[in-house]
Design a protein around this nucleic acid. Structure first.
Lengths: 109, 109
DNA sequence: CCATTACATACCTAAATGGACATATATCCC
DNA sequence: GGGATATATGTCCATTTAGGTATGTAATGG
């Protein structure tokens, strides 16, 4: 069960997850949406499943995969600590001041 | 300029970014906060810089690194497409229905 | 039962890369 | 200048792994 960022690091796996955004898809369906061979798709789906990012449901001969939010949430939460670095227009100067709250900014730098 | 998820896939790099959460840090400072050698820290900082995740500011002999939000934002935005998978209690059944909005749920499946 | 369809697994290989050590470069201080 | 400090780069290596091909397995239909 590798960490979620390592899972997301591979473009093919992200493409698979993008194809799953609007619901369950079969393996063959996913193969058509990528440039990967069927075994490669199955392999990446296996990795996604082992890491808890997708779930599998059997339906006859078909295997239907779907997104499981829980693991992706970890990544999102990690990134949330950095939101302030783009939400406010934080410059490095602002940061420097933030680290030394005792010294007030001087009029002339 | 590798993609941001590949950058974040390496734990050492995430540790460096965590150490930069509350502002600029020098290289030596970051070395003390990791178990990496100084050259390894410099190497990873170089990668982070090339990918636009951190910025460098020289201050005498010291090189001060800081977070640049822009690149991380891309990752956060990608993940935002999956928020609904954990924000609502979405089951696979819900998803199936979402994919076929024309057919109403039948009383007996 | 047999062919077909749908998917998974085994195995292999080429490529990428994280981290270490040695060394180069730059700045500071005496 | 010269030594010390701070950081960067060069080089090497062991490890990981994405993707392909070949093959195995399970479900469906006649």
């Amino acid at each position: 069960m590798a960490d979620v960022f390592q899972i997301l690091a591979v473009p093919s796996r992200r493409h698979l997850l993008e194809a799953l955004r609007d619901g369950e898809r079969s393996v063959g369906d996913l193969v058509h949406r990528t440039r990967l061979s069927q075994p490669s798709v199955s392999k990446q789906l296996r990795i996604l499943r082992d890491s808890g990012v997708v779930a599998l449901r059997a339906a006859g001969r078909q295997h239907l995969y779907s997104i499981r939010g829980r693991s992706l949430r970890e990544a999102s939460e990690w990134l949330s600590y950095y939101e302030r670095f783009w939400q406010e227009g934080l410059s490095r100067m602002d940061e420097a001041l933030r680290r030394e709250p005792r010294s007030r900014p001087r009029r002339n730098g």
